[in-house]
Design a protein around this nucleic acid. Structure first.
Lengths: 341, 341
DNA sequence: ACCTCGTGAGCAAACGATTGTTCAAGACAT
DNA sequence: ATGTCTTGAACAATCGTTTGCTCACGAGGT
């Protein structure tokens, strides 16, 4: 393949008739350092003309900064994570950083983020998203030698987290269903032992109480975040008497499972049952009927986390803790008022 | 945040009572170089004990190898690209390489992959997937100073490509529909000016001819790769007389659009119309009815491309050209025999 | 006229690893 | 006992940048 000799600082220096150190200072905008205006011009144009790009390795060695962020996610075939990645890459690129991606399939055994990234001086900081329990996460992260921000959860004992306000999400979703006239609303809960799952359950309950309804524990069924889970949990709710008129799913995937179960049981959506999800994905449009959702700023989680991490690195801030708010209901066709009577 | 002093080669050398150069040779398994067995043991255990990890920047500077691959994709919210990324990360990690991700929104203006990655010595090679026309792609890539492999297409004038055999995919899909008894099969084509789209169309035609059926041009409607496109193209096919009994969509997304249109037009699937897609995605399971597809080795595209690129880098091969084959029909519920008569 | 000071730019030493070359010491043959 | 090999390991240069320091020169103050 093509071999092009690369332009070095020295080449620019020679072209401009100055020392390499002077070129370096000019190109790095050292305002404190004094360089004549005319010399500066000569250097800048020489650099542009030659198409000079600093060697990232050399610079990284000298300055101990890589201008690279690591992002560790457990899956790539889940839109939740890829949305965050999109936000993170945008933010990183906008500030001149690159993104090194690493898949952490099992954090408790695979210490990749420590060994490969942090310890090898490949990244200046880490963005981490994971499904592991808090203690496991903390244990891994305490070995990490660079600043980090945890995405999409609030973990005990970890300061820098950017999470979604899933309490508000479930509350607002439930309130939307209430506003349609539903009184018996079932909840296909996420995992009830994790942060996001418990926050959603609390938000759902808060909305009901706010409407003067006493939450019925029989209407909560743990579905996790999968199609199968949603299917199973929806069937469980169908057996409850009196039957609910609406179901609030934690995720789009579990809502899809619910829709499948409802189709199978010949329950019409939305005529006999409304279904909605506390978060939104593009594929909600492909469902039958298209799924009403609450739009959550998933992309912004990545963006805010990356920006926060960079602020941390540049000492513009000392802590990154955000709780991002829902962005409103996306009304599609899976919700309607309950049938009279 | 935590600052840990990092262990350097010199630290290991001091601990083992030898010179840094000797440590380097041992740790890099220089079989040619002679080092006493006892010394070797002492070094290895000292390195392990101290938890030594070579500084990637320093090594990269000296060796002009970064052990990093760049991967450039136009979107991250499209499973086609994320599947390839999964394969690529697995292959890269397995061979000790990291993956630097970059989003190329518009290749003709954004020369990111050249400026930021190749020219700055941040990557040893590039994996590129893009939707741009061949000429644009070639123009951008000819500036790139590192080896590269193009994923998911065969581009004119570019040697190293890993593509899917979409001719075979469309042919096998069509043959499956034929085997169910369908004779009038519509094709929701991809874009007819790109490589994959034309290959699929050809495969679809070949299958029909193989069954002694003369392809009816009226049964081909360009749908592109979107929900809307699939909806529109499906409606067009419904107007053709006599009406087809099956539709072959290029992608899962356009099939979703077709399902939507068929629901709206009260055409039952699969009773009145079979629908299938020439490629598979997880979300096909969430459709109503679940979509019959052909499984394509999307993940393997990334894997093979990354492995090929690494072979290229290590001079184990001089060219990477693969055409990956379909992996069989995934029968779900959207296909059935046509109704008698 | 001499000393001081400010300005602009070069010198040279890092950063941490790799690698060509040199060197010391023991083995062996003459 | 002397010279030649072989073996094991140290020495030192180098990769391309950044950055502390030195230095030359001209201006300005006394």
């Amino acid at each position: 393949m093509r071999i092009k000799k690369s332009i070095k600082l020295k080449d620019v220096a020679r072209a401009a008739g100055v020392d390499a150190s002077t070129v370096s200072r000019v190109l790095n905008n050292e305002t404190e350092q004094r360089v004549g205006a005319e010399t500066r011009d000569r250097i800048v144009s020489a650099a542009r003309e030659l198409g000079y790009k600093p060697n990232a390795m050399a610079r990284g060695l000298r300055t101990a900064r890589t201008f690279t962020l690591g992002i560790a996610v457990p899956q790539l075939d889940n839109p939740v994570f890829t949305q965050m990645m999109i936000g993170a890459t945008r933010a990183a690129h906008a500030r001149g950083y690159e993104l090194l991606i690493t898949l952490i399939e099992d954090m408790s055994v695979d210490s990749g983020i420590y060994e490969r990234l942090a310890s090898a001086h490949r990244v200046d900081g880490l963005l981490v998203s994971t499904l592991e329990p808090d203690e496991v996460l903390r244990k891994v992260l305490e070995r990490v030698s660079v600043p980090y921000v945890v995405m999409n959860r609030k973990a005990r004992g970890i300061e820098n987290c950017v999470a979604l306000d899933n309490f508000a999400a479930a509350k607002q979703s439930t309130e939307y269903l209430l506003s349609l006239g539903h009184r018996r609303i079932g909840h296909l809960a996420g995992l009830l032992n994790d942060y996001n799952g418990t926050r959603r359950l609390a938000g759902y309950r808060a909305a009901l109480k706010g409407a003067g309804i006493d939450p019925d524990p029989a209407l909560v069924s743990e579905a996790g975040y999968t199609l199968e889970g949603g299917d199973r949990a929806a069937r469980a709710l169908l057996r409850v008497k009196p039957r609910p008129t609406a179901m609030l799913a934690a995720t789009v995937m579990s809502a899809a499972g619910a829709l499948r179960a409802l189709h199978a049981e010949k329950v019409r959506v939305p005529a006999d049952m409304s279904v909605m999800s506390t978060n939104d994905l593009q594929i909600a449009d492909t469902f039958h009927p298209p799924l009403t959702t609450l739009r959550m700023p998933l992309l912004e989680v990545g963006q805010v986390a990356a920006d926060g991490l960079l602020d941390l690195l540049e000492s513009k801030t000392s802590a990154v803790t955000h709780l991002l708010q829902p962005k409103g209901v996306v009304v599609r066709d899976s919700t309607a008022a309950p049938r009279a009577g």
